[in-house]
Amino acid sequence: MLTTAAALVAPLLVLAIVLVLAVQSAPAVTRFGPGFLFGTSWNPVTLEFGALPFIVGTLASSAIALALAVPVGVAVALVLAEPGARGLRGAVGTGVELLAAIPSVVYGVWALYVMAPFVYLHVEVPVVQRLGWIGALSGPPRQTSLFTASLVLAIMVLPTLGAISRDVVRAVPKGLRESAVALGATWWETNWKVILPAARGGIFGAGVLALGRALGETIAVTMVIGNRPDVPASIFAPAYTLASVIANEFTEATGPVYPAALLELGLVLILVTFAINLLALLLVRRSVEPAR
């Protein structure tokens, strides 16, 4: 009886979090309606609250991060799932796990003081000089930008991608790999034409799970994204995410409407991440479980 009660805590927490945020954001929800999600102006002084800049910033930074991280994550998974080479696998596995253990705020300081200046000099400036005529790559380059945030996010979701893709690749029936090798397929043909197609669904699931992590990541992103509530015109422009604006403004928010608007951003964020996590779990489970 008691253990059942303890077991119920987790499901109840999920419901409570959604309910509490929904109730608390009511003043904003009733005042702005669905227009809240499409408004482009965020001005606490005039009580204008539109969430679009944050939604775009969150989606854009996560999408760029995934585009950068997925190829690397799949490569890590292939290496980790390869038969043989135990020493190498152990080292790579430990490394990826430690990457996951480093606190977000440490990535934040590192990104702010080490990565951002380097990326500014060696990536942003040359790219803007040569390709600045392309709208999405136009300048001026900045150290704290959507691109910098995406880069640090890519590093941070890599362990999730790598570890889950590894499980998925390992769950591919051994016979497939062996048949391919027996038919004379090379290493690349085995992996590219047999293993990866078989693991496709699960790797997609790993990507979706990583997306969920990226959307909700707060501190490191807050430190390097530039924190400007505008829809960014270029990847080198400063932006703002749902999580960052809550982190920066919630303790200063006064009156009934301003905190409620921030809580509504939190509600949007948590509903989206919950939905994405559920989808990802379904995808990953379907491709890992039948093999067990």
Binding site: L13, L21, A247, L269, I270, F274, L281
Partner: peptide, 20 residues
């Protein structure tokens, strides 16, 4: 249900937990 809830909670943005 508990397993699912735990998996979903692991992925909950920590800032939202802070708000809660």
């Amino acid at each position: 249900a508990v397993r699912l809830a735990a998996d979903v909670l692991v992925g909950a943005p920590s800032i939202a937990i802070g708000l809660f």
